[in-house]
Design a protein around this nucleic acid. Sequence first.
DNA 1: TGTAATTAAATTGAACTCAATTAAATTATA
DNA 2: TATAATTTAATTGAGTTCAATTTAATTACA
Lengths: 146, 146
Amino acid sequence: MSNNNEYMSLKLENQLCFPLYACSREVVKQYRPFLDELNLTYTQYITLMVLWEEKQICVKKLGEKLYLDSGTLTPVLKSLETKGYVTRQRSKDDERLLLVEITEQGEKLRELAKTVPTRVGCSIKLSSEEAMTLYNLLYKVLDGMK
Amino acid sequence: MSNNNEYMSLKLENQLCFPLYACSREVVKQYRPFLDELNLTYTQYITLMVLWEEKQICVKKLGEKLYLDSGTLTPVLKSLETKGYVTRQRSKDDERLLLVEITEQGEKLRELAKTVPTRVGCSIKLSSEEAMTLYNLLYKVLDGMK
DNA sequence: TGTAATTAAATTGAACTCAATTAAATTATA
DNA sequence: TATAATTTAATTGAGTTCAATTTAATTACA
């Protein structure tokens, strides 16, 4: 009798990756109306989230936190600079490093953004226990991969 | 005493969306070496996965399954057509519908692709119970959003 | 010291994603 | 039946993502 496991696993629903991919995009989509109000994209928003905590950080470290590389971050940071939310300048100690720093205007944006998570949270229909479980499993996958 | 919950929730780690977004991209990245062998992108691959099950489907229905719209699918389907894996033709019954059908060559690719899930699965360091829990929670979020 | 190796960011090019718009076909209804 | 509303794909444009390459700076070490 033939073994169908491999063929079975080629079903969309049988792979973890697909719901992960679809769910990620759908949840990011929930942010849009709220981020539109702030004239921010999701990528710009999470970049600012790091800077609201760190004040100053180089592109490399920022990329490690966001799992993004300079190919993605360079245009995002230039755009945030144009909007007046960050400054970009080379480190005096090591000219290879580009230091990104939040501006006063960028700090102010935090006040306007602070209700976003709660508002988006409403469309994620999980109990806090389920959300915690999901959160932990996602980081387990993420940590297990590096 | 002031309430800091809203500020707290602006931390990257405090939102479910970020690990979802990062995890999705990292897991998709794991597919690359295997899909490179087949000269397929991830989006092309999941499109074929649907067609391996359905044989024929219109763009609308395909988009519902993949959570993608024609803006994304049209170029993907044209590319798969160029590679000889699918055909695209308007429905006789309703000229608005574009019917996508798997070709014999597309069917053959399934044989080559069948080991991909198992090979990628190795880099997801979860027990089968954890994987099932994660899977169910992702679909709960996804289903709760439509 | 001088050269090689490494590191950080920018750039390039291909592909994806999505919102908004357009065009064509179909369906509903006045 | 004629017109209006709806539906389906395609198109457009902005922004993202990533691999690969390039450039400049720093570090390692012969």
